[in-house]
């Protein structure tokens, strides 16, 4: 009975921790290194542009990176929703852009974007954003 209670408490704690923002960021970082790391780094331009502060940044706006004309034409700002659209279909969103890798899995996209938010100063962490919303 005592062991059963401890097990139940442990399961509750695990359930509460699952899917929290820090977990998403850690999982997203691992996915980012695996999936994006062939071409991108957080702090330096490589085959693709650097990702530090990508959330909230104007599209095709890093000085010195040779963007495709397709991405230059796209305009706007990278928001989490827009990044999700981009990762869902880069060539659908900006035909002729240099990136061809797409992610069909919405969970993988969510986790990678959670990581990109974590390395972006202008992207308020999700838990802070929720806390700052007015309560009714």
């Amino acid at each position: 009975m005592r062991w059963g209670g401890l097990l139940f408490a442990g399961l509750l704690a695990a359930a509460a921790g699952a899917g929290t923002v820090p977990d998403d960021v850690a999982a997203g970082k691992a996915l980012y290194l695996n999936t994006c790391g062939g071409c991108h780094s957080v702090d330096t331009n490589r085959i693709g542009p650097r990702h530090r502060n990508v959330v909230g940044r104007a599209v095709a706006s890093i000085p010195g990176y040779d963007y495709s004309s397709a991405l230059k034409k796209l305009g706007g700002v990278w928001t989490p929703a827009r990044l999700d659209q981009w990762l869902s279909g880069t060539q659908k969103m900006a035909p002729g852009s240099k990136m061809y890798l797409e992610l069909d899995d919405p969970t993988k996209r969510r986790l990678i974007i959670a990581y990109l938010r974590s390395v972006s100063a202008s992207a308020m962490p999700e838990h802070s954003r929720m806390a700052s919303q007015p309560r009714h």
Binding site: L33, T35, G38, T44, R46, L103
Partner: peptide, 30 residues
């Protein structure tokens, strides 16, 4: 771009190469 100047040991080189090769395998596959 690869911060190669910061590599101080063989282990550093192996770690960087490991990261690049994993990313490359995924990039081709993806």
């Amino acid at each position: 771009e690869l911060k190669l100047g910061s590599l101080k040991s063989e282990a550093d080189v192996v770690a960087l190469a490991t990261m690049l090769e994993r990313g490359a395998a995924s990039a081709y596959f993806g």
